[in-house]
Amino acid sequence: MEKKAEHNIKAYGNNFTTMTPGPLAIKLRTCKIWQFIRFIIINIKMLIVVRKSH
């Protein structure tokens, strides 16, 4: 069985109350098509903040 991110949680340890991504969320992070779309969206969002700041 592939190790899931949630398997790193230690009961009542530092990370017991956090959220962890599931396999789909992790896969999407390096999915080229999805990330190409995100690339365009993030660039637009960043350019808006850059414009607002100058």
Partner: peptide, 14 residues
């Protein structure tokens, strides 16, 4: 509206 964040390959390309 102007404070956001996400992690992924796109961030690395940027």
């Amino acid at each position: 509206d102007y404070t956001f964040g996400e992690i992924g390959l796109a961030g690395h390309w940027i």
